[in-house]
């Protein structure tokens, strides 16, 4: 009986001492963690794509709370969660413009002229170092899909040797931009629906020889709607504040089909018919 009592007393005493010790250390060495960091981490997409420039979603959340990082740097966050995060921080949600990536090329294997049969590593950067792959055009998409493999959201499709970004899947993280050896990919506001899908700085006739779908700077579009286009040398770009509609594009009827709507460009069989 006494043995049991002694055992119980020792255990109780030990528990008490350890309890006090734990309590003390918890107070003394407490790490101040803002509960909001965890909440915000939960609300972020969790893809750890790195598009915001931080080491991942958790790191970004910490930076938001502690160093007042800009929430809108996260392009993948949904509108709803974005508002919730703003609420947690007690800030105005503000206007956040969604951005998507666009590959400025429409020269797939049918349209772009073949220079040679490329045989080697299935990697755009490696091909670029080696005569630039199989297409004649030195500015266009090599089409070996380095960007598609880099994309965490599966938004880039390689169709017939051409990278096509599906804007509904694209989160605008911008990871694909650096990997493209031709610097063809740019982030644009998700609202812009019309682009000139060509990036070649060659002279018109050279371009025409190299690719059926090149912008040959005929300026048909510029003459039709002067405000919405911006011609630089042999390349025309749609201005950012243009409000072109699909109908106008159809009326302009770009002769090579380089001027196209996002919907038509990404549609499943646009490659075969050319522009509307």
């Amino acid at each position: 009986m006494t043995n049991i009592l002694i055992a119980a007393a020792v255990l109780a005493l030990l528990g008490l001492v350890l309890g006090i010790l734990i309590g003390y250390t918890a107070k003394r060495f407490a790490v101040e963690a803002d509960p909001r960091i965890e909440e915000i981490t939960e609300l972020l997409p969790g893809a750890n794509c790195g598009g915001c420039g931080y080491a991942g979603c958790a790191d970004f959340a910490k930076e938001i709370v502690e160093n007042d990082a800009n929430i809108s740097s996260c392009s993948a966050c949904s509108e709803e969660n974005f508002k919730k995060i703003a609420e947690i921080l007690g800030k105005e949600a503000g206007n956040r413009e969604k951005q998507v990536a666009v590959v400025y090329c429409s020269g797939d294997n049918h349209k772009a002229k073949r220079l040679a049969r490329y045989n080697g590593l299935n990697d755009c950067r490696a091909a670029a170092a080696l005569s630039g792959g199989g297409k004649t055009c030195r500015f266009g998409c090599i089409g070996l899909g380095s960007c598609a493999r880099r994309c965490q959201f599966g938004a880039i499709e390689i169709r017939n040797g051409l990278a096509i970004v599906h804007p509904e899947l694209c989160e605008g993280c911008g990871n694909c931009i650096d990997i493209c050896p031709r610097k063809l990919i740019r982030l644009v506001p998700a609202t812009s629906k019309i682009h000139v899908y060509c990036n070649s700085l060659e002279k018109g006739p050279v371009k025409r020889k190299a690719c059926e779908a090149a912008c040959i700077a005929c300026k048909k579009c510029v003459r039709a709607v002067p405000d919405s286009f911006n011609a630089q040398g042999f390349l025309v770009r749609v201005t950012e504040d243009s409000n072109l509609t699909e109908e106008t594009i159809r009326e302009i009827a770009c002769p090579t089909g380089a001027l196209d709507t996002v919907a038509h460009h990404t549609a499943a069989n646009s490659g075969k018919e050319g522009a509307a």
Partner: peptide, 9 residues
């Protein structure tokens, strides 16, 4: 034209 094979050494 266009039929030559292009590859690394």
């Amino acid at each position: 034209e266009g039929s030559l094979i292009l590859s690394s050494s």
